[in-house]
Amino acid sequence: MKTTRLAVLAFALPLVLGACREESATPEVDEAAAASAPATAPEPTPKPAPAPRAAAPVAAPTPPPVCENCGTVSSVVSHQAKGEGSGVGAAVGAVAGGLLGNQIGGGSGKKIATVAGAVGGGLAGHEIEKRRNTSTYWEVTVQMDNGTTRTVQYPQAPGVTVGQKVKVIDGQLVLM
Rank of each mutant, 00 (worst) to 15 (best):
L13V: 09
A25P: 00
A90D: 03
L6S: 11
L15T: 07
A118L: 11
V174I: 05
Q103T: 14
I104W: 15
T134F: 06
K111E: 08
K165R: 15
A59F: 06
E84N: 09
S36F: 12
V73H: 03
G109E: 11
T62F: 03
P27D: 05
G109S: 08
G83D: 00
A39V: 13
V73W: 02
F11S: 10
G125V: 04
N102G: 11
P44M: 11
Q153N: 14
I112N: 06
I169R: 08
V92F: 14
Q80W: 05
S75F: 02
P38I: 07
A54Y: 09
R132K: 15
R131F: 10
P63R: 12
T45F: 08
P46I: 07
P14Q: 08
K165Q: 12
M1W: 09
L9V: 09
P50C: 01
C70W: 01
I104G: 04
G147D: 01
T148D: 12
G147C: 04
G107P: 07
A81S: 13
A60I: 00
V162E: 06
K110E: 03
A91V: 10
A113Y: 04
P14Y: 05
K47I: 10
V95H: 04
A41S: 07
T26F: 15
T40L: 14
N133D: 13
G105R: 10
L173N: 00
T3I: 09
R150C: 06
P158W: 05
A60M: 07
R132F: 10
G93I: 07
L173E: 01
P52S: 08
G125R: 01
A35D: 04
A60D: 05
V16D: 10
A25D: 09
K2Y: 11
A49S: 09
K82W: 02
E28R: 12
A96D: 02
T3F: 10
V76H: 09
A116E: 03
A10L: 15
G18C: 03
V140I: 04
N102L: 12
A35F: 12
A49T: 13
T3L: 11
L6V: 12
P64K: 05
K2A: 14
P48Q: 10
A116D: 00
E22M: 09
I128F: 14
T151K: 13
V166S: 04
A96H: 05
V152R: 01
V58W: 06
G147R: 05
T149G: 02
P52I: 10
E84K: 13
A81E: 15
P50I: 09
L173P: 00
G147H: 06
V73M: 00
K110M: 06
A37D: 04
T161F: 11
T62P: 08
P14W: 03
L100Q: 02
L123Q: 03
V76K: 06
M176K: 05
T151C: 03
A25L: 14
G163M: 04
T114H: 02
R132A: 11
R53M: 09
C70S: 06
P48L: 08
S135I: 08
V160F: 15
L100T: 07
T114G: 02
T40Y: 11
G107W: 05
P38K: 08
A56M: 11
G121W: 02
A51M: 08
M144L: 12
V76T: 13
